[in-house]
Nucleic acid binder design. Structure first.
Length: 567
RNA sequence: GCGCCCGUAGCUCAACUGGAUAGAGCGUUGGCCUCCGAAGCCGAAGGUUGCAGGUUCAAUUCCUGUCGGGCGCACCA
């Protein structure tokens, strides 16, 4: 289904045909006084042609054929063209959206194949706050892209290969507790690592032993490889619990180790083709034509022959191109990695990789003290603990409101609210800004929060529970009350909002829209009785309620957030 | 030293990528439940968008400088 904005833009394009070559842009009006939609194309054009904008606007309006959609377009201010939607058109439009599977969201014009790299926790280490944003934002982008019709491969690039495994294996061989490994594998692996690390700092012999274990692992010693495999398997199993709780799924989870046997050949190829050159004993790729990166070469082989972070990422990239031939690859990784990705993408360009590579950075999560969020003891806050607390706090809310509800139902609802609150707090924030983590804020029923949106949904569902028997969608919507009108207009904007999320990877656009929708609905709900209204208003209002609930549900689903029927 | 990101109401955040009188929530404050969930709604107060220039019909948005904060910058990932 085409959005109204794109319909209007098409009409404008036709009106401009012969006047000028310009791509007209229509936006939702900033203020109801200026109508519903507006375009500043006359002003942009005036700039180009050094002409009078209001005169141009007049000229455009004369040729603009929107009689079936809008009242007479008005020229205002410096040369804005304001469009007011006709009531009849709005009724028809809402009816169309009501019966549209995608609720007014247009499918992507060109379907792309996208590899989406996000989450990327480290094996043998717990997932912590640092993984939240990547996981949640990445998952949302995958959901939105798929919904729009793109083909998405989600790939969890696990940190499963590194020097820490020397110590983990040493600890495994000496002190592992099988029972702990069965119940809390990652915790046990961390214990083994920490113990080995502490001992190695004090005892040269232990340090050497750990290094030996690492060398053996790297050279393919069967016993150590088997232990490492077990570590990966156990950690992944525990990660999967987290992902299941978060409702996040991956098509692939190829860790760094998956590319080990490609590193040497890749590096040899880069060296042979002259892309890489030796410098100070290491093999590097220089970017001499790029002023910013001129003194920041990408290192792909250490002077001792070992490979690096960038090497693995390049091998991964090469593999992804071979296996999936994607149009684009998206990396949802924290902002501090910007330089690294500049370098990797720079090398990729030299290698002739033609997929569009997008680095999607995000800001940090801060504690109440405005510093990186940590526990009191200075450790990273573990994801498991954080999600547990979210559910506990949500459970207390549910309990307070619905003391008589069965415990099992309370728990289910608390999970939906708690997890939803954590996700929404993240997604409703502009991607790049650091944000302060606050339980009270994210679980509040007031303001731009998941519980507020979920509550709007629940209130609507409550109406339908009260309804005896069936109801039928009206032949025609009745849009008379100002609250009905503004709700209908807001519902219409869903289809315009969802695709924007991918314009610059901004889930918060969708979050903000849903908040406005819930708000608009509440206003409608206060002003317009539904069940007590007479026909045909009653069916029309029921349909507005139903459509609102479906859009809230779908919108939240695109954010990876579920909705309860009661709360 | 260089680079990237960020400075918006007392606090936490928006602002549809250059548009009209910069918007929400919390907090402060005044109203609204014999009525579908008041976990809600309506209103008031609160701003030199860090600062100084520049570009233009129009700047929170772009450019330059500057101050403040965060994070990166050759063999960790």
């Amino acid at each position: 289904m085409q959005t109204l904005i794109s319909i209007l833009e098409t009409k404008l394009r036709a009106a401009l045909n012969g006047i000028a070559q310009i791509e007209p842009q229509v936006t939702i009006a900033t203020d109801a006084r200026f109508g519903d939609y507006q375009t500043n194309v006359a002003m942009v054009l005036a700039k180009q042609q050094r002409a009078n904008p209001r005169q141009l606007a007049t000229q455009i309006i004369e040729r603009l054929d929107v009689d079936d959609i809008c009242e007479n377009p008005e020229i205002a201010g410096a040369g804005f063209i304001n469009l007011r939607i006709k009531n009849d058109f709005l009724k028809k439009r809402v009816a169309d959206i009501f019966s549209d599977e995608m609720l007014g969201v247009p499918s992507a014009g060109r379907r792309k194949k996208i590899v989406l790299d996000f989450s990327g926790p480290n094996i043998a280490k717990p997932m912590h706050v640092g993984h939240i944003r990547s996981t949640i934002i990445g998952d949302t982008l995958a959901r939105v892209a798929r919904f729009l019709g793109h083909e998405v491969v989600t790939d969890n690039h696990l940190g499963d290969w590194g020097t820490q495994f020397g110590k983990v294996i040493y600890g495994w061989k000496n002190w592992r507790d099988e029972q702990a490994l069965a119940t809390h594998p990652v915790e046990e692996l961390v214990r083994l690592y920490k113990k080995a690390n502490a001992l190695a700092e004090a005892d040269e012999m232990v340090l050497r032993a750990c290094r030996d274990e690492l060398v053996k692992l790297q050279s393919g010693d069967p016993e150590n490889v088997a232990i490492w495999r077990k570590c990966v398997e156990l950690s992944w199993k525990e990660f999967e619990q987290m992902y299941s709780l978060l409702d996040v799924r991956f098509d692939e989870h190829l860790g760094e180790s998956a590319y080990n046997d490609r590193l040497a050949t890749l590096v040899a190829k880069l060296e042979k083709s002259g892309i890489a050159e030796e410098s100070e004993g290491a093999l590097c790729v220089f970017f001499r034509d790029n002023p910013v990166l001129a003194d920041k070469p990408a290192l792909i082989r250490k002077s001792d022959g070992g490979f690096l972070y960038a090497t693995t990422d390049l091998a991964t990239l090469e593999y992804r191109m071979e296996r999936w031939q994607p149009d684009e690859i998206w990396y949802v990784v924290g902002a501090p990695q910007a330089l690294h990705f500049d370098q990797v993408f720079g090398v990729a360009q030299k290698m002739g990789i033609d997929a569009k590579l997008r680095f999607i950075p995000f800001g940090s999560i801060l504690g109440e003290d405005r510093k990186l969020m940590k526990t009191r003891s200075g450790d990273n806050v573990q994801l498991r603990d954080l999600l547990e607390e979210a559910q506990q706090r949500a459970l207390a809310m549910v309990e307070q409101k619905n003391p008589a509800m069965p415990d099992e139902e309370k728990k289910q609802i608390a999970q939906i609210i708690g997890i939803g609150a954590v996700k929404y707090a993240d997604l409703s924030q502009a991607r790049m800004t650091d944000y302060v983590f606050s339980w009270d804020k994210m679980l509040s029923l007031q303001g731009n929060t998941a519980p507020y949106l979920q509550n709007a949904y629940v209130r609507i569902r409550s109406i339908f529970r009260k309804l005896d028997g069936d109801w039928k969608a009206p032949a025609e919507f009745v849009l008379a009350d100002p609250a009905e009108l503004s709700l209908a207009k807001k519902l219409m904007q869903f289809g315009e909002t969802v695709p924007q999320v991918l314009d610059d990877f901004r889930p918060n656009i969708l979050a903000n829209y849903l908040y406005e929708l819930a708000n608009t609905f509440h206003t409608f709900y206060e002003a317009c009785p539904v069940l007590k209204a007479d026909e045909p208003v009653r069916s029309s209002r029921l349909a507005l309620c139903d459509l609102t609930a479906r859009i809230l549900g779908l919108g939240l689903a695109l954010l990876g957030i579920r909705v309860p029927e009661k709360m």
